[in-house]
C-alpha cells in the first residue's frame, strides 16, 4: 500500500489529468465490450460468455484489413461489420436453439465457441503475437494539458467511444428499433403478439452487441498485441463491469466501466499489488449490498 503516493497524486493537477484520462481510456474501451454484453443480457436474458472472443475477432479483422489496405478507417468499419455478421450467424444458428432453457446450456455453447474461435485464430493467423502498430497520422507527440500527458491517439479514442456511446443512447432511447428492444426486454411475448418478428429483434441485438465488441477490438488494436486467447481477460473485466453496473443496464455498464477504469488507474498508485483484487472486492461488495448491481432492476 502506498497511500501517501495516492494522496500526493490527488493534489497534483498533472497527476490528476494523466491518471483520470488513463482511467477513462481503460474504462471507455471496456464500456464498448460491456455495453454489448449487458444489452444482450437485458433483451435476451442470455449471458454471452463468448463476448471476449467477439472482441478478439474484431481485433484480428481490423489487423487484417489494415495490413491489406493500409487504411485504419476501413479497418474499423471492416471489423465492426465483420463481427456483427458473425454475431448474427452465432445467434441464429446456435444461441437461438438454447434460449429459455438452462443457463448451463448457453454456457456450454459459448464455451464451445471460445475454444473453437481461439483455435481458428491460431490456424488462420498463427500462434505468435502480432502487433499492428500505430497508424501514421496518430504518430505525433502527446498533448499536454495542465501538466498532464495525453497521447493524440487516446484523444481520438475517447472521442470515438463518446460518439459511439451517444449513438447507442440515441438508438435505444429514441428509435423505433430501440423501443422494440426495450419492450422485448420487458415482455417478449407481448412484442411477438404485436406482430413483431422477435427472432429478427434478437438477431439485431446480437448484431449490435457484436458490432460494439468489434469496434472495441478495432480501436484497441493499434496499442494492444494480438494473440489467440486475448479475449479472456477482456471477458472477465467486462463481466465485472456489467455485474457492478447491473446486468441489462447500459447506463450501468458505462458507470461500471468508468469506475473500474478509475480503480485501475488510481489503484495502481495506491495499491500497486492489489489492483485486480480491488476489482473483485468492489464486485463482491456491490453484489452483497445490491445483488442486481448499481443500476440493475430488482429480480
Amino acid at each position: 500500500m502506498d497511500l501517501i503516493a495516492l494522496a500526493n497524486c490527488l493534489v497534483s493537477p498533472s497527476c490528476l489529468v494523466t491518471q483520470t484520462t488513463s482511467g477513462l481510456i481503460i474504462g471507455l474501451l471496456l464500456f464498448l465490450v460491456a455495453a454489448g454484453l449487458t444489452l444482450i443480457f437485458g433483451v435476451l436474458n442470455v449471458v454471452n460468455f463468448a463476448h471476449g472472443s467477439f472482441y478478439m475477432m474484431g481485433a484480428y479483422f481490423a489487423y487484417t484489413v489494415y495490413v491489406f489496405t493500409g487504411s485504419y478507417a476501413l479497418a474499423i468499419v471492416g471489423a465492426a461489420l465483420g463481427v456483427a455478421v458473425f454475431s448474427i450467424v452465432f445467434e441464429r444458428f446456435f444461441m437461438s436453439r438454447v434460449y429459455g432453457g438452462n443457463v448451463l446450456m448457453q454456457l456450454l455453447v459459448c464455451y464451445a465457441f471460445i475454444l473453437i474461435l481461439d483455435d481458428v485464430v491460431k490456424i488462420v493467423w498463427g500462434p505468435e503475437f502480432k502487433s499492428m502498430g500505430m497508424p501514421d497520422y496518430f504518430r505525433r507527440p502527446p498533448v499536454f494539458i495542465a501538466g498532464g500527458v495525453i497521447p493524440v491517439f487516446y484523444l481520438f479514442l475517447m472521442g470515438m467511444t463518446a460518439l459511439i456511446g451517444a449513438g447507442l443512447w440515441l438508438i435505444i432511447g429514441y428509435t423505433r428499433f430501440g423501443k422494440v428492444v426495450r419492450a422485448a426486454a420487458v415482455n417478449p411475448q407481448m412484442v411477438s403478439a404485436l406482430g413483431i418478428n422477435t427472432g429478427l429483434v434478437f438477431a439485431s441485438v446480437f448484431a449490435l452487441g457484436g458490432l460494439l465488441a468489434g469496434l472495441a477490438g478495432a480501436l484497441a488494436v493499434p496499442v494492444r498485441s494480438l494473440v489467440s486467447g486475448m479475449g479472456f481477460s477482456i471477458l472477465i473485466e467486462s463481466f465485472i463491469v456489467t455485474v457492478i453496473g447491473g446486468m441489462g443496464s447500459i447506463v450501468g455498464a458505462f458507470v461500471g466501466a468508468i469506475l473500474v477504469g478509475m480503480v485501475r488507474s488510481y489503484g495502481s498508485i495506491g495499491f500497486p499489488l492489489f489492483v485486480e483484487g480491488l476489482m473483485f472486492l468492489l464486485m463482491a461488495i456491490i453484489l452483497v449490498i445490491k445483488p442486481s448491481g448499481l443500476f440493475g432492476k430488482e429480480a
Binding site: S22, I26, A220, M230
Partner: peptide
C-alpha cells in the same frame, strides 16, 4: 494484462532516470 496505461502514466509521473522491465512476448510489445 491487455492495457498498461495506468502503469505507464504512473512511470511518467515518477520521472525516473532509468527503468527496468522483464515483460516479454506480446505483453512487452503491447
Amino acid at each position: 494484462q491487455p492495457d498498461y496505461t495506468e502503469v505507464i502514466t504512473k512511470l511518467l509521473q515518477a520521472k525516473p532516470q532509468a527503468l527496468y522491465s522483464c515483460l516479454w512476448g506480446g505483453d512487452l510489445t503491447s
